[in-house]
Each structure stands twice: as structure tokens, then as C-alpha cells.
Write a protein that binds this DNA or RNA. Structure first.
Lengths: 238, 238
DNA sequence: CCTTTAAGTAATCATTCGATTACAACAATC
DNA sequence: GATTGTTGTAATCGAATGATTACTTAAAGG
């Protein structure tokens, strides 16, 4: 997805010799909004709310800083929207698993589950959702965006949203997947551990530290190779 | 420097008689250092690294902002020292439990453990350390200070230190308490969940939200009343 | 007393950052 | 082709913040 109509990189010279326009390609506001939210999710996930600047988001989205502010009003409003979006993606991922399971579409995946963990619907859904959660690590923005919100409870608006969002996830796992409170708690705890391991960038030292290797191995299991690959890609891009 | 300009304000203002004490009480630098670290832990725990200012730390410690900076050099150095201190307290708390257990000093506490969770040394130590961890919530600064470090992996110095610190804790739990990797992982996961619940200030809505009530109940168990009390105290302190 | 040292602050500086303003260019519509 | 709304930027402002400088003052030690 790149510019076709405009200059900048369109025809030959990226230099601004001719028309001194540094302006981005014009696209509808609704699409631009989504691009900004995508960029903001990455920036906020990386640096947290206070550690991010609207200019970093603007640069990541390929537009100017005033445009970001004008479109969302304030940095806080932008953060809240990005948070909602990330939470929505997580809830949708879980609901997709549940729906597919109940429709009997996961016969293949069921073969690879740990039989010792139980064969009831809640036990199997728990394992399947854990896999879906680990899949979200590939993006890395979504889970760390949530994590950053979870440690920003001192900001009144963000704290309130984070609380509600976390409880939404708990209720989904309990009511829609049917996990008992204790099982739901264990499920969430595993998720928070994964977030933490990603947050401290443990995959980056996987090869140099055997303790890190062991902990990552027993936390991510079959999803470890994918996470390691995503980590390396992230480092290149960073 | 002692020639002429020395007495600029010496003309009228040096009232030493009673009230207006613009300067803090003079105490040895080593003690002041500890006071600043204590204050910094609370501030960083609350607002994170980027969200905290050296002036907030100074105010919390009852001294001026330049003094904070001069004593630690940079905000980052201050954060790293506070982080070390918090991690040290956590490690010490766990080692105290292990030593007391091995010395047979915990006969009373053993009566209150869940027998269904197993009666071997690792199983009992896991439960005892979980209680010790929850006890640290009372301070609140220590655990959230660590949590804030865990989401600051993008800061090179902090990220490196956070990684090492987390692995130190894992090794302690595995090697000194004797937990298997899987059990150690589950233990850490519960800890990360507790941190998250504290981070989003879930205890503050305990009375208004039955979902929050259930989740807190099944995560903190016997330690819930203490955490609720600490939460209320924290709110009053603001 | 006087000199030295340690503890502490006021003032300020250079950046950074979120937000605002004013404007430019493109596109649709009449 | 003039009008009008949409998409976008440059310039800049005021407040906040980490750090520095220069100073003050309470003790400690002759």
C-alpha cells in the first residue's frame, strides 16, 4: 500500500526539487483514522502512555503531528481509542475460537491438545484460547497496548477503561467459555505472564541465556518458534 | 568567593527565629538517600518511569528537586537504584520464607495451607511464598515498581536490568525453593496477575462490582481483607 | 574564633511536547 | 469557474521538565 498518485516516491526523484510538497497522500478521514490508530497502538505498546509523543505516532503514521491531535482531540483520547481497539481484537479472537469450537470446526486442532489437561469443553477451550492468545503476540502491539493500560491506573480515564476491559475479558472467559472462576483466574494469570515476558523482551536473549530459554520454552510451548521469529522481525524493524 | 558578594541576602531576611524553614532538616547523605529511594519507589510505582518527574520524587521526599538530581545523577540512575532496592526486598522476602521453613519455624502457618495442593516441600513453599508475595502488596510500591520496570523494556538500561531481575526471581523459585519449571511458571504467573489487578486498582471497585469481587476473592483468598484495607489507606493518602 | 566541609536551595536554562492557529491544496458540487 | 468542504501542513506558543550553576547555611574540627 503506497502512493501512486502523489510524488515523494512516485516518479523517479524523491527529492523535493519540483513541487515543495511534503504532504501525505490524501485519503478519506475514516481510513486515515484507522492508520493512525494502528500506528498509535505500536507506539503506545512500545513506550507506554506517558512515554509516547503524538509526534512519534504521527511519524509512524506518515503524517504531521497537528493532524493527529486534531483528529482525536487529545493524546488521552487517542490512547483510549487505541485501547478500545486492542481490547476489541482480543475479545474477537477469543469469541472466534469459541464459535469455531462449538461449530465443530476445530477437529484438527483438538488432536494437538494436551489430553492430560482434560477433555471437557472448558478445558479444551482454555487450551485453544491460550493458543489464540499466543498468536496475538505476533502482532505484539495488541497485548502490550493492553499491558501498558494495566499499569496506567493512576490516570483516571485510562484506569477506569482498563478495569472495565479486564473485567470484560474475565467475564467472557467465565461465561462464554464456561471456565470456573479458578480456572479463569489461572488462564488470565498465564496471559499476564506472557505479557510480562514480552514486555521485558525475554525472547531477545533466548539464545544467550539458558534460564530464559527454559522459561520461554515452558510458557510458550509450541508457540515459541513463532514468537522468536516475531521478536527478530521486531528488532530489525525497531 | 568569600570576599564581597557573599552577603547579598544578609541584610534583612535571615529570620531563624521560628517558623519559615525553607530548607529541610539536615541529615546525613546516606540516610537522605534512603528516604529519596523510598519516595522514588512510591512515585515510580504509581506513574511509571516516563510519567514521573524528579520534582514529584523531591516533593515526596520533602526536599528540593536539584538535590535529588545531584544525589543520583540522572532520573534513570535513580530509577535503576529504586528498582534494585525493590527487587532486593522481594528476593529477601522469599528467602526468609524458605529459611524459616527449612528451620521448622512455620508449624503454625502450615496448618492453614490447602492440603489439596500437595504436602511436599516445593508445594508448601509455593503456597507460603504466595502469601509472602501478597503481603508485599501492602506496601504496593515494591510490586508496582517492578511491574513498571517490566513494561519499560524499550529503555535499554531499564530493560536489561528488568530482564536480569525477572530471571533472578525465576531461578530463586526454581533452585532455592525447588519448584519444577512448570510449577515455577505457574507461581510467577499468579504473581503477574496480582500485579495486574493492583495496577488496574481493582480493589477500589470491590464493593461496586460483583465480578471484581469474585476475581479478587479467588486470586487473593485469605489476603484479600489486608489488600482491601491497604487500598483504602492508599486512597486516603492520595 | 575561624576555616572547611557537607547539606541544601533558588534561579534558571535548554529541550520537549501537546495543543492551537493560520494557511495551502485538492476535490466535489452547483 | 466560482464556491465550499475536506485533507493536510508549517509555524509557533506555553507549560513542563531534567539538569546545571551559583549560592546559603548548619556543623565539625582545629
Amino acid at each position: 500500500m503506497s502512493s501512486v498518485a502523489k510524488k515523494t516516491a512516485g516518479t523517479g526523484a524523491p527529492e523535493k526539487g519540483s513541487t515543495s510538497q511534503a504532504t501525505a497522500e490524501r485519503i478519506p478521514a475514516a481510513q486515515r483514522r484507522e492508520l493512525i490508530l494502528e500506528a498509535a497502538t505500536g507506539v503506545f505498546a512500545e513506550r507506554g502512555y506517558a512515554g509516547s509523543t503524538t509526534d512519534q505516532v504521527a511519524k509512524a503514521a506518515g503524517i504531521s503531528q497537528p493532524y493527529v491531535v486534531r483528529m482525536f482531540g487529545t493524546k488521552e483520547a487517542l490512547f483510549l481509542e487505541a485501547l478500545d481497539r486492542a481490547q476489541g481484537k482480543l475479545l474477537r479472537a477469543f469469541r472466534n475460537v469459541i464459535a469455531a469450537y462449538d461449530a465443530g470446526e476445530l477437529a484438527e486442532e483438538l488432536q494437538h491438545l494436551d489430553p492430560a489437561a482434560g477433555s471437557g469443553r472448558p478445558e479444551q477451550l482454555k487450551q485453544l484460547m491460550a493458543i489464540a492468545y499466543a498468536d496475538l503476540v505476533e502482532d505484539r502491539g495488541i497485548l502490550m497496548m493492553l499491558m501498558q493500560a494495566f499499569v496506567s491506573g493512576h490516570e483516571p480515564a485510562i484506569g477506569a477503561r482498563a478495569r472495565e476491559g479486564f473485567l470484560d475479558i474475565y467475564r467472557l472467559v467465565r461465561d462464554e467459555a464456561g471456565l470456573s472462576p479458578d480456572t479463569a483466574r489461572d488462564f488470565l494469570a498465564q496471559g499476564m505472564l506472557m505479557n510480562t515476558l514480552i514486555g521485558i523482551r525475554l525472547p531477545e536473549v533466548y539464545e544467550q541465556d539458558s534460564t530464559a530459554e527454559e522459561l520461554l520454552e515452558c510458557t510458550l510451548r509450541s508457540k515459541l518458534p513463532m514468537v522468536l521469529k516475531a521478536s527478530k522481525a521486531q528488532r530489525r524493524a525497531g
